[in-house]
């Protein structure tokens, strides 16, 4: 009993150990898994996030006119598991330290993140395409001496043609040079 009295006495001097929230800010660690955010500039529409999302909180729908796709992330359906962040190849999805998820009933259909991600048209044929973000392109073409920025503005078909043309030119140059 004496051992416990010591702890009690210690606690009296220590004071309360609870946070003063909402009157003071509650401490939120750096890695806290709060509300998920999408950076539309990095999204390439690969849909792996939708595939792994446990709650089915992510909707990706292409617009019928081919101008791009709508990305919707429903915060209330999100389980805050962080799988989308883990599997996203471009780092477009991230969990934030924002855990303030209380909202009035009237706002529940707005409690989501909506983004429109536009398609560009291919420089060669005009087909709609979603270019890879520069960081990823740099990684893919790290060992290649090609104009990656130009290639990324082409659809896969035009890219093939462009690369073939390049190869032909290079071999012509090599032949005339020798």
């Amino acid at each position: 009993m004496l051992d416990f009295l010591k702890i009690l006495a210690g606690n009296v001097f220590k004071g309360p150990s609870t946070d003063g929230f909402p009157f003071t800010q509650a401490h939120t660690p750096r890695r806290f898994r709060g509300k998920v955010h999408l950076n539309p500039a990095l999204c390439v529409g690969c849909t792996i996030c939708r595939h792994v999302c446990a709650g089915g909180a992510i909707h990706i729908a292409e617009r019928p006119d081919g101008s791009g796709y709508d990305y919707t992330l429903w915060h209330n359906t999100c389980a805050l598991c962080g799988l989308c962040q883990h599997y996203c190849p471009t780092g477009a999805l991230s969990t934030s330290g924002d855990w303030h998820n209380a909202h009035p009933q009237s706002e529940k259909y707005q409690w989501c993140e909506r983004h429109f991600v536009p398609f560009l048209s291919c420089d060669g044929c005009g087909a709609p395409l979603r270019p890879l973000p520069p960081a990823l392109t740099g990684r893919i073409y790290a060992d290649n001496h090609v104009d990656a920025a130009r290639l990324m503005r082409l659809c896969p078909r035009c890219r093939q043609i462009e690369t073939a043309m390049h190869a032909r030119e290079a071999s012509h140059e090599a032949q005339s040079g020798s």
């Binding site: 890695r31 806290f32 598991c81 962080g82 883990h86």
Partner: peptide, 26 residues
């Protein structure tokens, strides 16, 4: 909460490994 981001569900595992790493500070 500090190392994994949640008080109960650590979300530490994925198929083939783990989803978190330790740095010096943590």
């Amino acid at each position: 909460e500090t190392v994994y981001g949640n008080r109960m569900d650590l979300a530490a595992n994925c198929i083939g490994g783990v989803r978190y790493d330790l740095d010096e500070e943590l």
